[in-house]
Amino acid sequence: MIIPHPLLGPRDSQEFTYLGDANLIDRPDWQAEDAVDRFHDYLYLRDNPAGEHKELWFHEQGDRSWLVVTRNTLTHEIISAELARDVARTRGRSK
């Protein structure tokens, strides 16, 4: 698989390590009333779709940036890649 790195261009997926579903960006608020339930769901439950999947890849052998890669789990086709930092910021994180 070739991952189109937004800064470095096409890179072999071997240079990356994989974390999982990009929803892991959305860490729940630990002070919320239902934090226990939300952390359980956040940590242990997955959508696990057959088809398009947004997921976190870490460019460990490269520039050490985290990417959100959109990939088809049925065909392994990679549709897009963006910096996880940008994704997190558009979701209102780290303002």
């Binding site: 994989y18 696990n48 999947h53 049925l74 065909t75 392994h76």
Partner: peptide
């Protein structure tokens, strides 16, 4: 990585 493809790389 997540996959349903029944083939690897």
């Amino acid at each position: 990585y997540n996959s349903y493809a029944q083939r690897g790389n």
